[in-house]
């Protein structure tokens, strides 16, 4: 797993890539908990995310709660069909605004 953070326009862009499993998900959770307290507009780029299990999904859920608490915006983009299916099974497609790619996520309103 790799995490890279950038600024793109009004968004903090977080690219999470590789495999997020039960072994490294604590690292992601710690990162997202800290991020969710200091940033209010976050876009998570999942285009190079190969694998994510329930522990990684839980970390994203914590981030969403933190961002909503400060009435901010969290968007996800670039999910592969496999990852999109995992998100749908978890019901996350109803919780997270999910965009096809980076451009559409950045150009969507508000």
């Amino acid at each position: 797993m790799n995490i890279r953070e950038d600024k793109v326009g009004s968004f903090t862009l977080l690219a999470v890539s590789g495999r997020v499993d039960s072994l490294n998900s604590e690292t992601l959770k710690d990162y997202l908990q800290e991020l969710g307290k200091r940033e209010s507009r976050v876009l998570v780029d999942c285009s190079a995310l190969e694998y994510i299990g329930s522990a990684g999904l839980g970390a994203l859920l914590i981030l969403l709660k933190l961002i909503r608490k400060q009435e901010g915006t969290l968007r996800l983009c670039g999910l592969s069909p496999r990852i999109a299916e995992v998100f749908a099974i978890a019901g996350f497609d109803k919780l997270f605004p999910i965009f096809l790619d980076l451009d559409s996520a950045l150009s969507a309103g508000a």
Partner: peptide
């Protein structure tokens, strides 16, 4: 069982694992 249709306020990080197993 996890209620995957529950609103965000009622969603908790736990319990998703076995739900994924059943569905996958």
């Amino acid at each position: 069982q996890v209620d995957t249709g529950a609103p965000l306020a009622e969603r908790r990080p736990g319990g998703l694992g076995i739900h994924l197993v059943r569905r996958l």
